[in-house]
């Protein structure tokens, strides 16, 4: 018993979705986390709560609102269609948008924590050594927060691989386009194909475990170096 073509396609889509989502989240999440870590804005906590919402919200709720917003009659979907595009609902792009929201806290929170841990002092030192604010960010803040980046990337990736509700709501489980592994497993169980469900489930379990092991092992190495 091996993977069928459909399962293989679902695996590729899953990995592609997780990779693209992680990349987008690192690009968007880094400035956001930096701002959250450094800003003294009074109402910063509001934004922090919004970022953390996907941690507690049922994925179906998030998926439902995203579907409403992205659908042809939703504000975003209508805007895209008026510009000559295609509503992102039930497409791979829609999955990426949903995943970005859904995995946001898993990327932003480790980054924010890492930037906070860097503190003001190394940046002040860099300023007195002629480094401009942007220069300080790239030459001091990012290298010192590298363990946070590793954690953020792996958690963001792993969490996207594991999502179900949001993907189901917004992607519609279209094989070859929006069907990801977690839903493929559900489908197999629905039709009592336990063997194939085992293969996929076991594979996901192993993948997730390996990713987390690498995070913890590497972070331990970092802390040893920094102590």
């Amino acid at each position: 018993m091996t993977l069928t073509d459909a399962d293989f396609v679902a695996l590729v889509i899953t990995l592609k979705l997780a990779a693209i989502t992680t990349l987008i989240l690192l690009l968007l999440g880094t400035p956001l986390a930096w701002w959250l870590a450094r800003s003294r804005w009074r109402f910063k906590f509001l934004l922090e709560a919004v970022v953390a919402l996907p941690l507690v919200l049922p994925p179906t709720v998030l998926g439902f609102y995203l579907l409403v917003a992205l659908g042809p009659h939703g504000p975003v979907g209508a805007l895209v269609e008026s510009l000559g595009g295609h509503s992102p609902a039930f497409t791979f792009s829609g999955l990426v948008i949903g995943s970005v929201f859904y995995s946001m806290p898993f990327v932003v929170q480790p980054l924010q924590g890492a930037f906070t841990a860097v503190g003001h002092r190394p940046l002040e030192v860099a300023a007195t050594l002629r480094a401009s604010p942007l220069d300080r960010f790239f030459s001091v803040a990012i290298p010192l927060a590298r363990s946070g980046f590793l954690t953020a990337a792996v958690l963001g990736f792993a969490h996207t691989v594991g999502e179900f509700g949001v993907v189901l709501m917004i992607g519609g489980n279209i094989p070859g386009s929006t069907q990801v592994l977690s839903i493929a497993i559900y489908d197999h169980v629905e039709v009592l194909e336990y063997g194939r469900a085992h293969w996929l489930s076991g594979g996901l379990l192993l993948l997730s475990f390996l990713m987390l092991i690498s995070v913890y092992a590497l972070n331990r190495r970092f802390t040893v170096v920094q102590s």
């Binding site: 002092r121 190394p122 002040e124 030192v125 860099a126 300023a127 007195t128 050594l129 002629r130 480094a131 401009s132 604010p133 220069d135 300080r136 001091v140 290298p143 010192l144 590298r146 920094q226």
Partner: peptide, 20 residues
């Protein structure tokens, strides 16, 4: 003039070397 444009050297109380 922002600090990085001032030709000064600053030694902090703790050495504050870049750990990386």
């Amino acid at each position: 003039v922002p600090p990085h444009r001032r030709p000064l050297g600053y030694v902090f109380q703790e050495a504050s070397l870049f750990a990386h």
